[in-house]
């Protein structure tokens, strides 16, 4: 039937119509860009780093030989690796806990009706849509050792002692706190939007039924809203964990891992070792430590999300 229709068109339209109706030709054609993208930009670098991690390749040399798990042994033996691993976990877990709390509060307030709601929504989304490098430079000034707006405000309000001038990015604990704050600021908008979508998908009837059934705000929130929101919350947390775990921008722009590697995370440490240090094999080994952890996290969360699926 399709060819009969196609034949009635002019020759030029004919081949187009035939192509548009030919599913055997069409699906590989449509999928090709996606497959190409995955193979070239995800698959190739991934297998290259697998390959590098068991070799002795460096930036400067042309020769390369198989060394087995030597790189992993070497990386694990350094103190910096363990600091970076510990920091990555702290960085991820602490920031995600706060993201969850803030995103829930924001999503709930934004799902209510009030004047100027669109403006607040826009402002909340801003950190997510603005380029992170711009944001990070802003934060760099906020945390500046001399011009820090936090310190000056603290002084003016007498929250800080007369000679108290914290160096936000220069003291190990404060530096960690600082980058965690920036990461929270960065991830909260996405989590808020995801949770907001989840909230709007709960039918109003369910909230009304709970209200008539005698539930107050807390019972409604804890026994109805949160459980119904759980699957979508897990998705938000999964995104947050992966974005935070693999992220190096905030640390790289704010502290470069300093002071003395005290804020180093696995992603920055892999970069400094492999690219700036020239030890490609070592860098590949460090970065591969991320992989099994992320796979495990993804599997656990997707399983949980499926089990708690509702309606």
């Amino acid at each position: 039937m399709t060819t009969a229709t196609a034949n009635t068109f002019t020759a030029k339209a004919g081949w187009r119509t035939r192509l548009a109706d030919n599913e055997r030709l069409l699906w590989p054609l449509m999928l090709a860009p996606a497959i190409l993208y995955i193979v070239l930009l995800v698959g190739f670098p991934f297998f290259l780093s697998l390959f590098y991690s068991v070799s002795d390749v460096t930036v400067g040399s042309r020769s390369m030989s198989f060394v087995g798990l030597e790189n992993f042994r070497r990386v694990v033996a350094t103190d910096t690796f363990w600091t970076a691993l510990k920091n990555t976990l702290i960085f991820t877990i602490v920031s995600q806990v706060f993201v969850l709390v803030f995103a829930n509060i924001l999503a709930m307030s934004l799902s209510a009706d009030f004047r100027g709601k669109w403006l607040v929504r826009l402002l909340i989304l801003l950190p997510w849509v603005a380029p992170i490098s711009l944001g990070a430079i802003g934060w760099l000034w906020i945390y500046d050792s001399i011009y820090s707006v936090i310190n000056w405000t603290g002084q003016a309000l007498r929250l800080l002692g007369p000679n108290e001038w914290p160096i936000w990015l220069g003291q190990p604990t404060l530096a960690m706190v600082s980058i965690i704050i920036v990461q929270i600021w960065r991830i909260v908008p996405l989590a808020t939007v995801i949770l907001l979508a989840g909230l709007t998908s709960i039918p109003q009837d369910i909230h009304d039924a709970a209200a008539v059934d005698g539930a107050g705000f807390w019972r409604r929130t804890l026994q109805i809203t949160f459980p119904l929101l759980l699957p979508i919350t897990l998705v938000a947390v999964l995104f947050g964990i992966i974005f935070t775990f693999t992220d190096m921008i905030v640390v790289f722009l704010l502290t470069r891992g300093g002071p003395y590697d005290q804020t180093q995370v696995l992603a920055t440490w892999a970069f400094f070792t492999g690219i700036q240090g020239g030890d490609l094999a070592g860098g590949a080994a460090v970065s591969l430590f991320l992989f099994p952890v992320l796979v495990a996290v993804a599997i656990v969360f997707l399983l949980l999300a499926r089990r708690s699926e509702v309606t």
Binding site: P203, D205, A209, A211, V212, D213, G214, A215, P227
Partner: peptide
């Protein structure tokens, strides 16, 4: 008074059962 203090019960068109 809020709904919970009125001691009324309501059945909704969608039934509004708690799915979880």
């Amino acid at each position: 008074l809020p709904p919970r203090a009125r001691n009324v019960a309501m059945v909704f068109q969608s039934y509004a059962l708690y799915p979880h």
